[in-house]
Design a protein around this nucleic acid. Structure first.
Lengths: 191, 191
DNA sequence: GATAGGAGTAATTAACCACTCACACTTTGC
DNA sequence: GCAAAGTGTGAGTGGTTAATTACTCCTATC
């Protein structure tokens, strides 16, 4: 069993688990731009550096792949929140929420991670995707509430602000030089 | 020239302008569910009660059609805001914003109108669509700011809350019986 | 009442896409 | 060193889709 754990550098082929991880990581970029319906499995395969046929060895179908990408993004987002909460300078709700907001702003650098979750929201007419994105929001809201101890109203406001960030990221509002864009971007850190 | 204005009831065929209007109105429902990439021109045609080929007589291509739908939704939203502002009981920023929020909540009954604008945001990687949705947000923000006279911060907060509503509508959060859903739905009227 | 132009469609096309299959190569266990 | 299991692909397949074409029918005008 120990020999099973051989590092990939000692092998010429990757293990399926490693490949799955690569596919999930690289598929974020392809799904972020054109969403579930607009992204082809060939694009996903190319981004991961494998054949399109092998995508179907790693995931049963496109929908399962997309759901796995949603969960991957959801986990990474909560990791970022956990890091931020651990490093927060105080433990009162305001300070913790501030730290989480900072972490969210840093996630925007990626762009793609947040956009995938927004794309998942837009593809929620598919039951399996709706379940996955609901579960993602459920964990996120519950985590923010528990770690910050903030009021329901403050948590709601935090989430709403996050959705505003997502939208501004999707339309690249930071490239627009106009009053409306400045109003919406006010106080939103973007590195 | 006057005879050109013959009412449609006196004709067996519609004028192209009337058909275009019908297509835009009914296409909202189809684009709302699965977005730009996930909706076929055949579905749009069926919803409008015309052949798929005729969609291409009325609009040069699918992208132009979707852009026209975005603009149609954008106009209808601003009409709803204008109605609400005219009926507001007071003229101070808080009262007007309250009235606009009420109008937005009533738009959610439609569901589809708001969802189309969210779908457009998600399809913003297409330059023409990005331009259209940016223009829509520009007009909306400018209108809300001008009619309410509210501060930049209040306008931003109003828009963020709108995006929260859109997301909750997309995932049908009102059908979820869980704490996280109640937190996000608190204070959000849905008729 | 003929005719020009607009309304409308059935049928088709070329490209594309999700998904499959037969097959080849690599690694592991014994 | 060999068989079983695992990694990986080229070459499809059947169905779908955006866009076109060639055509019919309707309506206004003179």
């Amino acid at each position: 069993m120990i020999s099973h754990m051989a590092r990939s550098t000692s092998r010429q082929l990757s293990t399926a688990a490693e490949r799955r991880e690569v596919v999930l990581r690289t598929a974020i970029g392809t799904f972020a731009a054109r969403g579930y319906y607009g992204t082809t499995t060939a694009e996903v395969a190319k981004a991961a550096g494998i054949s399109q046929a092998y995508v179907y060895r790693l995931f049963p179908d496109k929908e399962s792949l997309f759901v796995a990408v949603i969960e991957y993004c959801s986990v990474r987002m909560r990791e970022a929140f956990a890091d931020a909460a651990a490093k927060a300078t105080g433990s009162d709700p305001g300070t913790v929420l501030e730290a989480l907001g900072e972490a969210y702003a840093r996630l925007i650098v990626d762009r793609d991670l947040l956009l995938v979750l927004m794309q998942a929201t837009c593809a929620a007419s598919e039951p399996a995707i709706r379940d996955a994105i609901r579960a993602s929001y459920a964990r996120e809201v519950e985590y923010v509430r528990a770690v910050s101890g903030a009021s329901d109203e403050a948590v709601q406001h935090f989430v709403a602000r996050g959705f505003l960030c997502n939208t501004l990221t999707a339309i690249r509002a930071d490239e627009v030089d106009a009053p409306w864009a400045r109003i919406l971007l006010t106080g939103i850190r973007h590195y």
